[in-house]
Each structure stands twice: as C-alpha cells, then as structure tokens.
C-alpha cells in the first residue's frame, strides 16, 4: 500500500503540487485526472524521487518511508515509475532495456519469471529483443518502458500518460495490459488525459486541479459525475 500525505512541489515561487494526499493499494488501479499543467507529472516525479518535494511530505510504501530516499533506492523499495516520454534507453536494445529493468537487487531472484511474464504480456517485445529501442514504434516503446518497470518486480507501478500518441487500437491493448498487471497483485497509479478509457478500467480516481486534489471517488461514480463529464469526458451539458 502506497500512502502519500502533504506532498508539495514548487518551482521557485510557483507551487505545482499543493498538499496532495492519496493512497494506492495492491491489486488496484487508481487514476489521476487533470488538465495540462495541473501538476500530474510533477506529482509522479516527486513520488519517484526524481523531483525534490517540499519538506514535510509523507510517502510511505508498506510501512517504509520513501520521502528521504534517492530515486534508485525508491525503485529498490518497490516503486517503479514509467515517466512521461517513456525514458527508455533508445541506444540500447530491447533485451538490454529489460535486463536493466532487473538491475534492482530485489528483482534478481525472480528475473527469469518476470521476463516470461513481460513477454507474455507484450509478445511483440519477444520478437524484437535485439532491436535498438529507439527504432521501435511509439506503442512498442511504451511496452518497453512498462516492461522495463515490471522487471524491477514493483509493488506499485506509476505511469505518466502511457496512452499519449497511441492509436485507439494500441491504447486498447495497453489498458488491457494494465488490468492484467493489476491481476498480478501490483498497485497501479495512472496519470491520464484519456479519462473515458482510464475510468473504464480503474477502481478509483482523483481529480487534480492547479496542483490540488479537488475530488475523488470510485471510478464508476466519477464516470457519472456531471462535473467530471463536463471537464474530462467531453459530454455536452444538457439543457434542463
């Protein structure tokens, strides 16, 4: 279980994330919806340790405090981040990317099974193991990024707009993979602009506006919420 409280991120005077609190349990998909610039990326980066958070933040994973750890140690503690823009090693092959995913000590023992699981989840990667990652299609690169994160045997997986730039077909494949990742017991924290699709697979959701959580609830009830429909689902207001 990932528990976050009082998490803030500032760039100079600009407060991009403001006192955010949220939780993600195992076997659960939680989606964060927010407009451009609402602080979604900053929030995920701060949790992953690649963007400093303001002091006083609480980031707990299974009872361990992650807030003071450096990014590499956070992965070691069981939290993996697939960043905005994927962050794969383009010059390296798919196989090398996946092998580096299991660089964490926690991932070494189960490496072979994890690789099997990733290649079952994304069979296309198995056909392209020797290919340089940057020569893959956008959707395939996203699979490399998620596969690499799964290779670290995470308890919690964070994903920053994985569907960005993907075709509807590829999107469907990706979200299908996320539900299977949930089945494996992993907690998924998903940042998305594609509200319709993400709410359809998520268990719960949070609404982020100007760095603040302004709403939360079960995915099914968020889907029906008129404010959410207006802001994120593009449903026209009906004249009453």
């Amino acid at each position: 279980m990932l528990e976050i409280a009082d998490l803030s991120v500032s760039y100079g005077k600009h407060r991009a994330v403001d006192n955010v609190a949220l939780t993600v349990a195992q076997s659960e998909i939680v989606v964060i919806l927010g407009a451009n610039g609402s602080g979604k990326t900053s929030l995920l980066k701060a949790i992953g340790g690649i963007q400093p958070a303001a002091s006083g933040a609480r980031i707990m994973l299974a009872g361990a405090d992650l807030s003071r750890l450096r990014a590499h140690a956070i992965v070691e503690a069981g939290l993996a981040l697939v960043p905005e823009g994927r962050g794969i090693f383009g010059e390296l092959t798919v196989r090398e990317n996946l092998m580096l995913g299991a660089y964490a000590k926690r991932a070494r023992a189960g490496e072979a099974e994890n690789l099997d699981r990733v290649l079952t989840l994304f069979p296309r990667l198995g056909e392209r193991l020797a290919q340089a990652a940057r020569t893959m299609s956008g959707g395939e690169q996203q699979m490399v990024a998620i596969g690499r994160a799964l290779m670290s045997a995470p308890d919690i997986l964070l994903l920053d707009e994985p569907s960005l730039g993907l075709s509807p077909l590829m999107c469907g494949e990706l979200f299908g993979a996320l539900t299977r990742i949930r089945q494996a017991g992993i907690g998924v924290l998903l940042v998305e602009q594609n509200a319709k699709r993400s709410l359809a697979i998520a268990d719960r959701g949070y609404l982020l506006e100007n760095g603040r959580i302004v709403g939360q609830g079960a995915a099914a009830s968020l889907q029906k919420d008129p404010a959410v429909q207006r802001a994120y689902l593009g449903v026209a207001q009906s004249a009453v």
Partner: peptide, 24 residues
C-alpha cells in the same frame, strides 16, 4: 555484463538510469 550495460545506460540517460535502481 549487466554492470557494464548499467554504465552505458548512465551515459545515454542518467535520469532514466535512476529509474532502474542504478545509483548514478
């Protein structure tokens, strides 16, 4: 080797290297 590949990963992308638990 994995250790050598990790060094190359730091060379090509030091931020992402941290995301695979490499102490840069």
């Amino acid at each position: 080797t994995r250790a050598g590949t990790a060094l190359r990963a730091v060379a090509v992308d030091p931020v992402s290297a941290q995301l695979v638990a490499i102490d840069v």
